[in-house]
Computed example of a mutant assay.
Amino acid sequence: MPNSALLPIPCLAVVLFALPAQANPALECGEVSQEEVGTCVAEDEEGVEAALFNALEAAMVTAAERDNSRGGTETEAALMASQTAWEAFRAFHCSYIGSAHPVPEDAGIATRACWTTLGRERVDELVRMSQ
């Protein structure tokens, strides 16, 4: 991943702390129409995806620094394998959440809310790994 796309750590902190608290993203949207909840959840998901990208970049820098100090490449490789596995888990798990939702019309919102919730958790984990 190119280092030029990295945000400085203070900027990363501002982006990450701007994320809402760990809650159900659909409930954070308030009591509005189904269409407005869908839009709200989609916007939340976009913000989390941006934070996830930045947190992964920061964790990659830290992993590379650790590998450089140890003369190896295991940390970076392990992080990338971990991220790939996590992305697959999120896709399958959230697909299940959507398909198992008791109200078929809300399945898309449930799936996106799942992506956001798991994304927030992964951001927190990646930030811890980059410190």
Rank of each mutant, 00 (worst) to 15 (best):
N54H: 14
P20D: 11
E35Q: 13
N24Q: 14
A50D: 00
L56T: 08
E31D: 15
A55R: 07
A64W: 07
F53G: 01
E65Q: 10
L12N: 02
L19T: 12
V41H: 05
R70Y: 02
S69L: 10
A42S: 14
D44A: 09
L12W: 03
A51T: 08
A26F: 07
E31F: 15
E49L: 10
E49K: 15
A21K: 10
E43R: 15
V37P: 06
E28L: 15
A50L: 04
A63E: 02
A64I: 04
N68E: 04
A18N: 15
A64G: 03
E46A: 11
C29S: 12
L27Y: 12
L19H: 09
A18L: 12
C40H: 04
V32W: 09
A51M: 06
N54V: 01
N24V: 13
E43K: 15
A18V: 10
N54K: 05
E57H: 10
G30L: 11
G71R: 09
E46K: 13
A64E: 08
L19G: 10
D67K: 15
A59N: 01
L16S: 05
L56Y: 13
C40Y: 06
D67R: 14
P25I: 02
V61D: 07
T62Y: 05
A63Y: 11
L27H: 12
V14F: 04
T39Q: 13
A42Q: 11
V15Y: 01
